[in-house]
Design a protein around this nucleic acid. Structure first.
Length: 315
DNA sequence: AACGGTCACAACCGCCTGGGG
DNA sequence: TCCCCAGGCGGTTGTGACCGT
């Protein structure tokens, strides 16, 4: 036997909620908080499963939910983040204020996904197919691999730069101090961000000698094979250990205080919003964005075409 | 007006994870 | 260490709205 259902299936109402039920639920939560979702229906006087109450609240009734159509900016974000994170809708939703994972998932599946094939883009991976209408310069075996290589090299480059900066600062504090940024490198901030984590996870998968699976299938096509938080944590641990080893070898500079996994207490805590902004915009450091040109630029092009298609075809 | 097909989205289902005992 | 439970997550389904014939 499998696990017990979350509620007694007999006599529990299913299907669409009516306004009266919504009102009861909202009033109860506003008054008491949701507490235990399992007991909430009885306490609130609702003939619903607790899980159903939780979903109704978090996907529809919550006061901070932003209703209405997605803006082009939100759409762009969704496309880009989906390319990076795969079907991790909750993680994507965390970057879009007021949007729920369910809403984003529905929007992607109904609006975005079906338009990607028109543009010769694999809807699962956002990878351009051979019939893509424009040239793609990066030629990795898969787009995620390209991301990872670029991320990894960027990170190493940043580490080296910081180490170098630290050494130089030590050696000639007075003359070079103005050239060395005291704040953490942006690459490293990104690396430590939630989005950067996604790349680390994929990197871990690829670096494993036992790995024979495409990361695409893990992040996009099948939730059962997707990297779950637990798997991710395990893999991340390995990566973090490798990072720490590398840092010990390279230098004992202040890099150590910056380049460690997101789990480390010594890591710089960068909010998701901030990291995302850094990731997408990189204000004022376009010349350092070469590592990211391959994919994100492509996503931007996709999005432009997508938008054009939307306008021209009146989707 | 009736019917069938398609679309959009709310809701459900089942699995997974983390926390507590 | 194991087990149980609550909550979270992603995939899938159900259903009402809309549109074309």
């Amino acid at each position: 036997m499998g696990r017990q259902p979350c509620c007694d299936k007999h006599g529990v109402k299913k299907g669409p909620w009516n306004p009266e039920e919504d009102e009861i639920l909202v009033n109860y939560i506003n008054k008491n908080g949701h507490g235990s979702w399992r007991t909430l229906p009885q306490l609130a006087g609702l003939n619903r499963c607790g899980k159903s109450c939780r979903l109704r609240w978090s996907n529809y009734l919550r006061p901070d939910i932003k209703r209405g159509p997605f803006t082009p900016e939100e759409e762009k974000l969704i496309i880009q983040l989906h390319g990076i994170l795969g079907n991790r809708w909750a993680a994507i939703a965390a970057q879009l204020e007021g949007r729920t994972d369910n809403e984003i998932k529905n929007y992607f599946n109904t609006h975005v996904k079906k338009r990607l094939p028109i543009m010769a883009i694999d809807p699962l991976t956002q990878a351009p197919s051979s019939s893509a209408p424009f040239p793609i310069t990066t030629t990795y075996s898969c787009p995620s691999m390209g991301h990872m290589t670029q991320w990894e090299s960027a990170r190493l480059e940043a580490e080296a730069r910081l180490s170098k900066g630290s050494v130089l600062r030590d050696n000639s504090q007075s003359t070079l101090s103005t050239q060395v940024k005291p704040e953490p490198d942006q690459y490293l901030r990104l690396w430590n961000s939630e989005v950067g984590e996604a790349f680390r996870k994929l990197t871990a998968t690829f670096q494993s000698p036992n790995s024979s699976q495409s990361p695409n299938s893990q992040t996009s096509s099948s939730s059962k094979q997707a990297l779950t938080p637990a798997k991710i944590k395990t893999e991340e641990k390995t990566i973090n250990e490798q990072q720490e080893e590398m840092e010990c070898r390279d230098s004992k500079s202040d890099v150590e205080d910056i380049v460690v996994g997101s789990e480390s207490s010594s890591s710089i805590n960068v909010s998701s919003d901030m990291s995302l902004q850094l990731l997408l915009d990189f204000p004022g450091c376009e010349e350092e964005m070469t590592f990211f040109q391959g994919q994100l630029a492509t996503y931007s092009v996709y999005h432009e075409i997508l938008t054009e298609n939307t306008l021209n075809c009146s989707f």
